[in-house]
Simulated scan of single mutants.
Amino acid sequence: MTTDGTRDERAAAERAAARDAGVGIEPAAGHIGAEITGVDLTEELSRERVAVIEAAVHRWKVVFFRGQRLDHAGHVAFARRFGRPVVPPRRGGASPADVPEVETTADRLELGGRFGMDHDEWLDRRRHTLLRGWHCDHGARVDPPAATVLRAEAVPPYGGDTTWASLAAAYAGLSAPVRAFVDGLRAEHRLGVGYRPRPGDDAYARHLLDHQVATVHPLVRVHPVTGERLLFVNGYYVERITGLTRPESTAVLEMLLEQATRPEYTVRFRWEPGSVAFWDNRATIHLAPADAARLGHPRIMHRVMLTGEVPTGVDGTPSEPLTGSAPGRW
């Protein structure tokens, strides 16, 4: 853990490096989110600019670029400056066949029809509580992605905003007794947690069983770069806190999820065509909008994820895979 003095010195050094590299960094909220200006992501970035952007991601958890002209290849090339892009084994038909690292999120609109539901029903069965939609990307894996780069191609004239929450700020905002309590806990993360099956035969429920992924993660993970403690909870993947009874686990998780998504720990981004968001998937959870599909306007987004590591807890104990994933294997 860093002291306030060390943190202030580091922030001053980062501001100086950004000025020297000709990069503007404008915070968007008090704890999380910053807009980066003065950078054309289609150009070859200097090592200095890469270092400034990476430091901003670690400091602000999610950074935004507007007015970019990236294509699929440029998107992957930019992401590769910060890590190794993931090649997802399964993508929908809207994703580009010749660029395997890119997922097109319009694929999500295909899922309801594929499993015999319209999109609204499929979404409602996955998000039947207010906090259920909050997630990090692929959080049920033993090695969730380290970061995600999301690019907007087409967006509706209104609606479709994405919100991110800082898990570092959420942990720091807990009282000292609660921090001491959660530091030693672990939680089971499982794909499809909370999905409400349709009566009778449910093709999506069968799909979840056939592709099950589950891991026991520390409830508080330590960031491998910044050393920050992160409240590693989300509504989409966490099944229960191990070692607690079901009622105890439900009550504690509800409290922690409400803590993680408090408005002061969040930032909301209004997308435009050409916008790019780059976030630390270890230190954030996000809420994809549920309103855009109902507006009847296209919302086409392209995603590249960076390979992550196995999380470790405060005591140094790593996450333990239960089924469906192994480190580095997608």
Results as ranks from 00 to 15, higher is better:
R229C: 07
R141K: 12
V233S: 07
P218S: 03
T148A: 13
E9L: 06
T148G: 14
A106G: 13
T245E: 14
P218I: 02
A56K: 08
A154K: 13
V86M: 12
A12R: 06
D202M: 01
T105P: 00
R229D: 05
A203Q: 02
T105R: 15
R229Q: 09
K61N: 14
H286P: 04
A21P: 07
A277E: 08
D120V: 10
V63M: 10
P177R: 08
R229A: 03
V99F: 07
R246F: 02
P177N: 05
L306E: 07
I25D: 08
S275W: 06
T250A: 14
R7D: 02
W60N: 04
H128R: 08
L70V: 01
A11F: 09
P311A: 14
V304E: 10
E153V: 11
G160W: 09
E153K: 12
A176W: 04
I53V: 09
Q212H: 03
A260G: 04
V23W: 10
T162E: 05
G83N: 11
D8Q: 06
M255L: 15
V76D: 06
R47E: 14
L111K: 11
D120S: 13
S249N: 15
V99C: 08
L322S: 01
L130V: 12
R179K: 15
A169L: 04
E309W: 03
